[in-house]
Amino acid sequence: MKLCFNQATTLENSNLYKDLEYCEKHGYDFIEIRTMDKLPEYLKKHSIDELVKFFQTHHIKPLAFNALVFFNNRDQKGYKEIIQEFNELMELAGKLGVKYVVAVPLITEEKILKQDIKTSCVNVLKELSDIAAPCGIKIALEFIGHPQATVNTFGQAYEIIQSVNRDNVGLVLDCFHFHAMGSRLEDLKKADGSKIFILHINDTEDFPIGFLRDEDRVWPGHGSIDLDGILSALKEIGFSEVVSVELFRQEYYKLDAEEVIKTAKETTVKVVSKYFDLQPV
């Protein structure tokens, strides 16, 4: 299994340039690039060609663009904007060698029937699949463990990608989101491991289902998530691709960015290495 860094972990105390330098120094294999803030910030002072050259001359590589946000159940204007944004991401992904685009479902206070959510997700993901296929890029649907997220459990997300039924459409399994809305290990154990493209590793403070928010995340192994149960289930179904550490904790944003990146690796390796071999750089 390869080790990846998600830029949310240093969202407020670093930038893409620093993240790349520190991740290279501390032996990460991949990085998930935040397209809504960190990539545009980088491109204000650097060119895309500089970023291409960096990846060509260093060990670390780009794993995913994170993220195409609120892709489903949009009005016609919003739908057109999503398709346009995705096409722009394809162009950049092709230049950089990005493997995946993470797709995040709509979060809304509007009450939408589950069947309407599924229909929208399936239709849009099929269209994105058609766009991405010639580029050799895959789409990873990330369910969000929040009561107002339209797709908020593993079981619901897995049913959607089964209906899409495309080789280049799968899932992100984020341990926090899995725990936060009570996703079931039984559902994970019945899944096809090849349909899980990325594992987001993290942990959380022990709040009830429905009350957890991203800022409650803590270092892997320092919280209440049944990481052993999730990791053993993933091993059982044949997943062994990439583990990406993703935290959003305000307390950690006050630390030096290199310290966060180093600690994130150490805590991740300690938890994950009980079940998977993390290949040394």
Rank of each mutant, 00 (worst) to 15 (best):
P105C: 11
V271H: 03
V271G: 10
K44E: 14
E81L: 08
D29T: 10
G210Q: 10
D75T: 06
D206K: 14
S232C: 01
L188C: 08
Y158D: 13
E81N: 09
F176M: 12
L199V: 11
L89G: 03
K190D: 14
C4R: 03
G136K: 04
N87P: 00
G145L: 11
F143D: 04
P280R: 03
G27W: 01
V101Y: 05
L39P: 02
G182M: 13
D192S: 12
D75Y: 09
R34S: 12
R74N: 15
Q84F: 05
N66T: 14
L171H: 03
D214K: 02
I161S: 10
V272Y: 09
N165A: 15
A149L: 07
G78C: 07
E205K: 10
K25F: 09
E236G: 03
K190S: 14
A64D: 09
Q115F: 07
Y252V: 00
S14Y: 04
S194G: 10
F176Y: 14
T10D: 12
F197L: 13
K61D: 01
H179R: 13
Y28D: 04
E50C: 09
I196D: 05
G27P: 06
E88Y: 04
L63H: 06
K53F: 09
Q148G: 08
I237T: 06
I261T: 05
D206P: 13
C175D: 11
L39H: 01
K235W: 06
N73V: 13
S244R: 06
A140L: 13
T268C: 12
A264S: 15
G210D: 12
E81Q: 11
V172I: 15
I82G: 00
L199F: 14
L234S: 07
Q76Y: 04
V245M: 07
A264D: 13
K235S: 08
A103M: 00
V218M: 08
F197I: 09
W219V: 00
K126V: 04
E24Y: 03
L128A: 02
K77H: 10
K53V: 08
G238L: 02
S129A: 15
T108F: 04
Q115V: 13
V98W: 00
S183E: 13
K126G: 00
G97T: 00
V242D: 12
G78H: 00
K61A: 07
T204A: 15
Y22I: 14
G94K: 10
N6E: 09
L39A: 05
A149N: 06
E259H: 07
I237H: 08
S224P: 05
F5V: 02
F178C: 09
K80F: 05
K114Y: 13
Q279I: 14
N152S: 15
K18T: 13
N72R: 01
K118P: 00
I137W: 01
